[in-house]
Design a protein around this nucleic acid. Structure first.
Lengths: 221, 221
DNA sequence: TTCTGTGAATTGTTTCACAGCC
DNA sequence: GGCTGTGAAACAATTCACAGAA
């Protein structure tokens, strides 16, 4: 259920505005989904709402946090302290949302000791020691693509079982290890695709005498 | 089709390794999907493969780039030059994958003139001028959450019709404008969720006498 | 024989619409 | 009367499995 974190954030935002109770309609609007979907999603967690009234914001918040597993903090290591690693280390959302950066690692020994967001950069070779000391289960890869598979292998060997990969490379990991990939240029290319279709639409609006796009198989969608 | 950019990148990787032809199996492996799905996806673009042989890497690469709309570069503006904005401005993948950063904007006038990745930071108020000068259709929001909606409104007013939003906020835009959202802590929370389930599994493995999780409605998945 | 392209079957997700509880 | 929780219906995505081209 990839939408639970979205609901959790929306609930936190409502709570910060002092709202104690909300309807599925309210919460759905805040989370950017429709209310039927939201109710269906929440119903899988149990019956935490009250018919005719709605949901208690704090109660639901706790239940979702419990379901996701962020009622306590997860220790996280970040490998690769380039521009992106810097941004991640400084990202304040981690602390408040269930994560604690226990180490920043970089293969470049020149960087060792440098403080980023109050955390010292350490050599990549310290990975095993740090992972076992803090029982790190989650690792973030912010290295260049070429290093990603190697970093992933070392993480897995060190006991990491969930990896967030920002490197533009597909990494392969053993059964039982989860990987999520965030790829900036892929996100942009998806926008470009929609943008292009809008441009075509527009061209047809302005020149209605032009022929339709040829009806290639699956030309639509 | 959100997977086309993934295929494009996999094809580029194959091309760089000197591979001229590949089977759906090869490409699927490089892209991290299964081959039936890949063939189905590609069949929507047309018949670009050869039965018994496979796909010509360069030819398919061009066809996918054309479908996505990245045969020419898209001008892009980035708003919010904090840590993340820095990382984005320095991200070399943009240039090579169909995008050109034409401006970096920040509301903090202290930053005006600062060079980031060779591009000068300019005041946010220059948005309209820059957007119309370069016909910018795609904007990136890397500001704090509180500023995101305002930035989005100004972008839309300036003619931007696709927005990549890194701010942890749901922004609302008029019909016809596309928004994609990347939220770092949501990605991590999804991993935490899986991590938690693995921990439960594991606990049961070690204490097989413990009862199964109660069969709550939808307890699984 | 190899490997694509694709109907058919399956599986999953979203929406509808309303019974039931407050 | 208002709003949740949920079957049932509609829709979408994925996988299977194989006919047919090279």
């Amino acid at each position: 259920m990839a939408r639970l974190p979205v609901y959790l954030r929306a609930l936190t935002a409502l709570a910060e505005r002092g709202i104690r109770t909300c309807s599925s309609e309210d919460l759905a609007a805040a989370a950017g989904v429709n209310s039927a979907k939201l109710r269906k999603d929440l119903s899988y967690l149990g019956s935490y709402g009250t018919r005719g009234v709605g949901y208690d914001v704090d109660y639901l918040r706790y239940q979702i946090a419990r379901e996701i597993g962020v009622t306590h903090d997860w220790p996280v290591v970040i490998v690769g302290i380039g521009n992106l690693g810097h941004a991640l280390a400084n990202y304040s959302g981690f602390r408040s949302r269930g994560f604690r950066v226990v180490a920043l690692l970089d293969a470049d020994l020149e960087r060792t000791g440098e403080l980023v967001a109050g955390v010292p950069v350490r050599p990549f070779d310290d990975l095993e020691a740090i992972a076992s000391e803090h029982s790190v289960a989650i690792g973030v890869i912010a290295t260049p693509a070429a290093a990603a598979q190697d970093v992933a292998d070392r993480m897995v060997a060190a006991g990491v079982t969930s990896i967030l990969n920002f490197a533009p490379a597909v990494i392969s990991v053993p059964e039982g290890v989860d990987v999520r990939k965030v790829d900036l240029s892929i996100e942009l290319q998806i926008l470009a695709y929609h943008e292009q279709r809008k441009a075509h639409e527009h061209a047809r609006d302005e020149h209605p005498d032009l022929p339709e796009m040829p009806a290639v198989v699956g030309g639509d969608q």
